[in-house]
């Protein structure tokens, strides 16, 4: 099975400014991917590249093994919910489904109708009169009706109230349980922790961290102990973030080895702490760019 998304040194430039640079990623299929980063970090640019709404200035991108937006077949394989949930406010819920059926060769009316029924949308109601949650659900129904293999959502729940958000995410997770690959961007790290099993952190147009959540959490430790110089950390520990008082040091390190130094109190890192550290870290600490580990003699 091809990767859901595979990029190689992808960059996108608007005028003189690079929105995304040197982005190399492999997103395995069947994952729910959380794309996080500050505003302007390049999230929407990456998503638009994956959908085929933008073309890269440099580098290559493949979605489900093919160039995005290549032809009608490829377009049908990827569903997209843009940030502003674009609907035709004068058209009814039923009109939107008819539009979906006319525009998508592989349209599955049963699936789309079932979603509309389940969330209690009235087919005769105009889209302009729907609540935020209902709009999101209608957009999801249209996106799912085309039976995509990959669903891409740009901040899908940002404007929803807590209840609508929970219902929307539960519906997404049901689709994931059926094998749909999902990529979603979000600022809500608690949601990301709940629903995502793969994480991509962007900052300043670059990938700072990417991988399966379990592996990322297992590869990082928080060390607390008496104050010390970070340069004296073992070579197999990359310091991502550090704080020092005159007596105490706290460091977030990435390491494959267990931390054996008894003067450290070692604790696991939470997803939110990890994401925030990478969003704030200087780019030298990004994955794959760590200094090559030196060999250490074992006595």
């Amino acid at each position: 099975m091809s990767a859901a998304i595979e990029t190689s040194a992808v960059g996108k430039r608007y005028g003189r400014a690079w929105a995304l640079r040197d982005c190399t990623l492999t997103v395995p299929p069947g994952r729910v991917v959380g794309l996080v980063g500050a505003n302007g970090a390049g999230k929407s640019t990456l998503l638009h590249l994956a959908v085929g709404l933008l073309r890269p200035t440099e580098g290559q991108i493949a979605v489900l093994g093919r160039a995005p937006g290549d032809d009608a077949t490829q377009l049908a394989r990827v569903g997209f919910l843009a940030q502003d949930v674009p609907l035709y406010s004068r058209l009814s819920v039923g009109d939107h489904l008819r539009l979906g059926a006319e525009l998508n060769p592989g349209w599955d009316e049963r699936v789309a109708r079932a979603r509309i029924d389940r969330v209690g949308l009235d087919p005769s109601q105009r889209a302009g009169g729907l609540s935020g949650g209902q709009r999101a659900q209608l957009a999801l129904a249209v996106a799912i009706g085309k039976r995509p293999e990959l669903l891409i959502l740009d901040e899908p729940v940002a404007s929803l109230d807590p209840l609508a958000r929970r219902e929307f995410l539960a519906d997404l997770m049901e689709l994931a349980a059926d094998g749909l690959s999902i990529v979603l961007s979000s600022h809500l790290l608690a949601d990301v922790e709940r629903v995502c099993d793969h994480l991509i952190v962007l900052a300043g147009g670059q990938v700072r961290l990417a991988g399966d959540v379990d592996q990322l959490l297992a590869a990082h430790k928080v060390l607390t102990g008496p104050r010390r110089d970070p340069d004296r950390q073992p070579a197999d520990q990359t310091v991502i973030q550090q704080r020092h008082t005159d007596r105490q040091s706290t460091m977030l390190v990435r390491t494959k080895q267990p931390v054996l130094d008894p003067s450290w109190t070692v604790s696991d890192v939470g997803l939110e702490e990890l994401v925030l550290a990478y969003m704030a870290a200087p780019s030298a600490a990004t994955v794959g760019r760590a200094a090559a580990p030196r060999l250490r003699s074992v006595t």
Partner: peptide, 18 residues
């Protein structure tokens, strides 16, 4: 079932499987 859990509490299906 995995589907029942994810529908009830909105978490990743792989988390339930794990």
């Amino acid at each position: 079932t995995v589907k029942e859990v994810v529908a009830a509490v909105a978490i990743n299906p792989n988390t339930v499987l794990k």
